[in-house]
Amino acid sequence: MKCKECDMENIDGALFCEECGAKLDMMEPLQDTAVETGSGSQLVLTSRDGSKLDIPAKDEVVIGRDDPVSEVFPDLDLTDLGGMDSGVSRKHAIIHRTGAEYTIEDLESTNGTYVNKKRIQPHVPQAIKAGDELRFGKLALAVQAA
């Protein structure tokens, strides 16, 4: 199997290129298509292994991780994706939806929210669209059109 980045020949089934570290043999995790406009457009979040998280059809969706002790149950729980070890706060960020437009706002999370590798200011909503990469602490998720 040839690496698309550096042309190095790797053994079939290798996950990363031995020469340059590029990802091999993977489903395409990112989709570059722009979000369709108009009502009913939906976004999903995709983790690096390909599992999908639907963004619930609500105007405001809190992202974080469940904590029964302090009774925090965000709309989108990232615990199963390793949220704890990746530094996801219990209430980490919120996605606002207005018609077909989506924005993300950091809720003063401990380890920060990033859009396309840039840390966003707390409480300053930033527009997101399909093709963007979000990161909560160290947990990266791709935004895709549903």
């Binding site: 996950l15 990363f16 031995e18 340059c20 570290g21 990802k23 993977m26 489903m27 983790s47 690096r48 292994d49 390909g50 599992s51 994706l81 390793g82």
Partner: peptide, 20 residues
């Protein structure tokens, strides 16, 4: 056959960074 385990994938990627 395209399905990959996330936990193993993540570890292999870390080891890949270490190797490089």
């Amino acid at each position: 056959a395209a399905k990959v385990n996330a936990e193993v994938m993540n570890l292999v990627e870390k080891v890949s960074a270490f190797k490089l």
